[in-house]
């Protein structure tokens, strides 16, 4: 069955990224997603990324595999991959928000996802919304330790 699925993942920038590099990542992702009929969202805060991809199963799998291979990201973590009945981000080839600067949360109506009450009126607000909130609240963020000392011997 060629049903829909979503893949929710977290990762961390392998090297510090400047704004131009972030924009470049986003533009490439949007172009690729459009070609494959993928929709979703990417959040960033202090080097940590949170991504939701949704679309046909083989397209989502292929797109996720590319992320996992990308040298710009490390610790790529598959949080949940599962079938879904309908898309949560059907209007966005790749929504984006940089939570490092809170005022940018207003981008593209994203702030709706973080306002209490707007999407919690039902028992299951949906996995995507719940995990977006979890990330916004500080879960699934990784700080790479660059100060580890090599043990002699």
């Amino acid at each position: 069955m060629a049903g829909l699925m979503h893949c929710i993942s977290a990762s961390v920038a392998a090297v510090p990224l400047n704004t131009a590099e972030m924009v470049e990542i986003l533009m490439v992702a949007r172009a690729n997603n459009k070609r494959r009929g993928i929709t979703g969202i990417l959040l960033h805060i202090d080097g940590s990324f949170f991504q939701i991809l949704e679309g046909a199963q083989e397209d989502v799998a292929a797109t996720y595999a590319k992320t996992a291979e990308d040298h710009l990201f490390t610790r790529v973590t598959d949080i949940i991959s599962e079938p879904i009945a309908k898309r949560a981000f059907s209007d966005w080839t790749m929504g984006f928000a940089d939570l490092t600067h809170a005022e940018q949360m207003a981008i593209g109506g994203l702030n709706d996802f973080f306002q209490e009450g707007t999407c919690c009126t039902r028992l299951r607000a949906g996995r995507s919304q719940k995990l977006l909130r979890a990330f916004a609240a500080g879960r699934w963020r990784t700080k790479l330790r660059r100060d580890l000392k090599k043990i002699a011997g």
Partner: peptide
Amino acid sequence: INEYKSLGIN
């Protein structure tokens, strides 16, 4: 379970 999930059933 995946069949149920793809229908939107919780």
